[in-house]
Design a protein around this nucleic acid. Sequence first.
DNA 1: CGGTTAATTGATCGGCATCAAATATGGTGG
DNA 2: CCACCATATTTGATGCCGATCAATTAACCG
Lengths: 253, 253
Amino acid sequence: MVPETNVFDLNQLRRSCSSCALGELCLPAGIGHDDLDRLDTTVRDKRMLDRGGVLYRDGDPFAALYVVRSGSLKTFVQDEAGDVQVLGFHLPGEIIGFDALALNRHVSQAEALERSSICELPYARLQQVISEVPALHRQLMRVISREVIEEHRHLVMMGRQQAQEQLAIFLKSLADRYQRLQRDGIALSLPMSRYDIANYLGLVVETVSRLFSRLEEMGVLEVNRKAVRILRPDLLADLCRNNTAATKRHDTG
Amino acid sequence: MVPETNVFDLNQLRRSCSSCALGELCLPAGIGHDDLDRLDTTVRDKRMLDRGGVLYRDGDPFAALYVVRSGSLKTFVQDEAGDVQVLGFHLPGEIIGFDALALNRHVSQAEALERSSICELPYARLQQVISEVPALHRQLMRVISREVIEEHRHLVMMGRQQAQEQLAIFLKSLADRYQRLQRDGIALSLPMSRYDIANYLGLVVETVSRLFSRLEEMGVLEVNRKAVRILRPDLLADLCRNNTAATKRHDTG
DNA sequence: CGGTTAATTGATCGGCATCAAATATGGTGG
DNA sequence: CCACCATATTTGATGCCGATCAATTAACCG
């Protein structure tokens, strides 16, 4: 059975950017039909990762950027003491690996949260195609910029919000991203553990667990382990803006 | 007297990348002598900002990237409720404005902390030069990547560290950056307010003030308003790694 | 089905926010 | 140059949110 699924997956993977289901949700956004074929020649390798599989780890030499094709990954940094900070969760169409551009080696780790397939964009080849396709350069810059903005959101969430607001924002953001992928934005199946969520938000797992329970009591969610159903999207949205603690911490001189 | 300083400053500003004191600490790092002249043609405008002067604000159309030439700036986001999150402090040689690439408009604000001069790199012209000088493309990507990594550091600091460790890391980082600029890394003159520091770290101003006092009591610092002298760099470095709270919060599943 | 890990729930504690007030500073006008 | 005012900074007292410690229950995997 294992060989069979592998064969099936490999067939899936052989499809090019032109025929990929992600389409405009990925790097090809804004790229013309002709240039798309050239982008295809950039995608050399396509990899499958099982749950827990590592795409790159801290210290790995920089070889490529990676596009999540299906499944999901988390990225995180880990200091010498083993202390971890989750940086983000990455869904199909998202590009990761930019951290390695500065020093030509990765300074973070990327790990699959579930069985996932990855498009690999060897950087040398990508650079060459970029020099031929100016639109691709602009698009790539847009993608990096989006990553910068996303990290700003993460910072605001950790620095300014209460724990409950943080979780609400996290869930709403995840729901929105799934919906943009034409998937269910109401009945979520969280690919990451409570530990991952807690770490991402700068909280402990007990707090996150309690918050899920509280949101369920409030009638906002229906929680069943990984399965989370958003019963009241309106309330969830309210909670995201519920700046009850909008005081001193928010001023700046 | 005001006109005189302006004339003086303008003369200073007329100097090109080739003769700029920042040299390899800025974008020219790794750019050959010949290509440097071409980079010079990119730097169209050079601007002076007084303390509190705004370089760009949220919503401004994207026109250029900016290099801090002298002085310092802070960048921050501000939500509809007026709630602020300081994203970073930017010293000479650092490039800001990447946030605008995604949507062709800025989604943050940049403000001078003291009288500062700025090199403006109109993006249209920069793109053209980039297409002619591949080394510049790589260098620009490295710079963006450094910004991504810096934000990772910020996230780790806010998410994992105690308040005292956060301030220690902040001070050490600032000292290191000044030293790299050939400036005093011991006797610092903090250009930003306590409010800015507190906001950057996700704390309130009272906490930051108390921490400065505590570090002074411990003999690590000598604090006099903006003037901070690092008496014991060794102790400060210790405090940065003093993961006394390295427990649950750091695990991940 | 047993062993391991994930998740939940409860009780308690502590660090940082909040509230309050004093002091210092810097800019402005007289 | 000095008095004055607005603002920045410091210091103190108190309270609360989320961390910690502890234990139970549920899921997963062989």
